[in-house]
Write a protein that binds this DNA or RNA. Structure first.
Lengths: 225, 225, 225, 225
DNA sequence: AATGAATGAGAGTTCATTCAT
DNA sequence: GATGAATGAACTCTCATTCAT
């Protein structure tokens, strides 16, 4: 981050360090401000006026850094989303396997939400208000989840009836669970807060054993092979 | 103040259409119009002008029936939500039990979405744009789901480690699955469409057997009581 | 359709006269205000704020009557242009013929400009700022002029070397003369004012005899002295 | 940036003067860029950003050379106007006299416009958007035209009813003709283009013989009404 | 009760100009 | 002198809501 001699513009700006750094600072502060504002009032009410006021710059400055309000919105989720991914990776012990690993990821996610309550809105409103970013984020997240499940599958950690093709819908459902549980028990509520342990346990039970106990009942009707 | 007696309409030749009924008609047509508009363009762009235009009344008329645009929005989901609930109930055979019943409900939900693609947006945007209605809807839906699961529990259809307290988070997660699967494979995508059978099968597998096969592994690590 | 009986109140607006009239009044006052503002500061600085302030209505009202600022601009020249045409027609004695008629029209035009000094800017800036209106106006004006000249041609009032084909460029040049003379000696200057008689006389000389007298030099014919 | 410090001063018109000359270069390139931009999009949309981008300098540099955008605009027409004047002088054979000389000047003007289509907009929009420059330009041009006509008058080339006082309005009208003819038949239209010969002939007829053939009628009659 | 024009606050965006580097 | 980001006033336009008819 310190070295900025790597890129050498043809026009030769004299003192690129302070200027470029200051510019980068402002850009970042705009993103941070936007994240905070969107987290608080949602995309729809995150006006440029509000964002720039929080960032402490003039409204016009906004447009030196982003083509439009929408362009900022489209960067918001990727930025914070990456942060979330790194956070979760850092929090999950590399040796964990199977269901334990999955539950650990869930917990890490909830912890991230506790520390970054804005993320909830940034993510879930993005579906309609920053759809490109949302689609990209979901794609990345799903792909990562499928990869992890795929490794579990290879290791034989999954039930025998689970096939490669099931992994995507299952990843999706587990992500869905994250979202709804945090909405209902955690950051999505007013005031945010921690998702209680017993809720995580319910997740673990569902993921570990499924819900219904009658053998084959669920699969029989709809599955022909 | 007009007479709102609707049972005997043939009283005077002056007024043929009862006022109250006509008023109710307009109110309903506004709700229908709003549902269509929100389904098409979302809450944010569902302007009063657009809704009244579709309903065929003047803009001012809107405010004779609803205190504000937000008040209409707050009625939208309850209305359409009830319709969805009735639809699902009607489609699920009363004799189905256990996982088969749950899967049938999932299918019915997807069918409702196919026939009412607007519902997807009305429901999922409501979380931020009609939060009161959304909370109420979720409460109702969850309560219904929990009741159903509770009956399954009483009948001994569930795994033995599932307790009464697990039912709410589990209901939530199954609802979450509905939402994300329809977003990804069905009505949430451009052009709507049917969720494929193999995706329903993946749901059935998860709900039936769980995901991970190591017995107890998932629960052990994270549960200390 | 005029009936506004209480028994048949479903479609018919009750008292359309005052409402429609008031609306028309506001629309007209916006046009008048716009004409005044454009005349004073030009199209570029004729902001909606300025126009509505002068018209005494709210800014939003503007958009109940015109799709956009440009749409008003596009109506401005046709409106005032028609007024000018009617004015000139009214001022020119129907029995005048030949050069006398042409000069009378020139005088009438100058008089109109004296009474409507805004017209100058409305017309001449329109070329770039309301090009469609300008083109339409010029087409109308040129066509009218050509028609008048054509009648003179038929009556044998014109020089023998003038043919039908010359009429359009000549009409254009006479219109050009109007414009530049008023710019330089009349309404185009600060403070407006009347174009002096001796300037009109110069016009009359040019139109009457041409400028150069050498036989054969320009086109030849009909010149001595 | 580049080594422009060649310090050998010889007899040849090669100058050293690194600073002043470089400064002059930038200033000129800004004027050239402005001319191109104004010609393309008009004064109103000729933003400082656009001009400096075309000139290849930073926006701030602009204000080292011009007090304001308007100050540049005020220099634009004088610069290009002088170029036009020199072009016309160079193209008109010094021995031509009378109407032939005038028509030759008209043709030269049209040729200049063909080669410099930007000039049309620079000149005609200047009336409202660079009024000082426009007034100065017109003054210069009119003075030159009057001088030329005055020489014709001294040589007896003009009609006897033309007096010294007529020369200014007549010069103005001939300039007006230039402008409108080029607007309608030449550079003013989309795509520019050459004014056809037959249009020039119409001009020649008007200037040569006038329009109406009744001698004297034009002047006398019009003073009564 | 129905109408639909009037309202005005507030939105996103532009751009001439300034100024620290 | 050259730079180019920062500034903030001004712009056009939208729309939920009001209210006289």
């Amino acid at each position: 981050m310190q070295d900025s001699n790597a890129t050498h513009a043809s026009r030769a700006p004299r003192r690129r360090v302070p200027r470029a750094e200051r510019s980068e600072q402002i850009r970042n502060s705009l993103i941070e401000a936007a994240a905070a504002v969107v987290g608080e009032v949602g995309y729809a009410d995150a006006s440029v006026a509000r964002i720039t006021a929080l960032a402490g710059v003039a409204q016009g400055t906004f447009y030196n850094h982003f083509e439009s309000r929408q362009h900022l919105f489209d960067e918001l989720l990727p930025q914070i989303g990456q942060r979330m991914i790194r956070f979760v990776i850092a929090r999950v012990h590399p040796d964990l396997r199977g269901a334990a690993r999955d539950v650990a990821r869930l917990r890490a996610y909830f912890e991230f939400l506790e520390e970054n309550p804005a993320f909830y809105r940034i993510l879930y409103e993005a579906e309609t208000l920053a759809p490109v970013a949302h689609a990209q984020h979901m794609k990345t997240i799903i792909a990562g989840y499928v990869r992890a499940l795929s490794r579990s599958l290879d290791r034989g950690e999954l039930h025998q009836d689970i096939t490669e093709r099931d992994l995507e819908p299952i990843a999706l459902m587990l992500l869905a669970a994250r979202g709804y549980l945090s909405m209902h028990y955690g950051a999505g509520r007013e005031g945010g807060g921690k998702v209680p342990d017993w809720v995580v346990d319910s997740y673990a039970k569902l993921v570990g054993n499924g819900l219904f106990s009658e053998p084959g009942a669920a699969v029989d009707k709809s599955n022909e092979h």
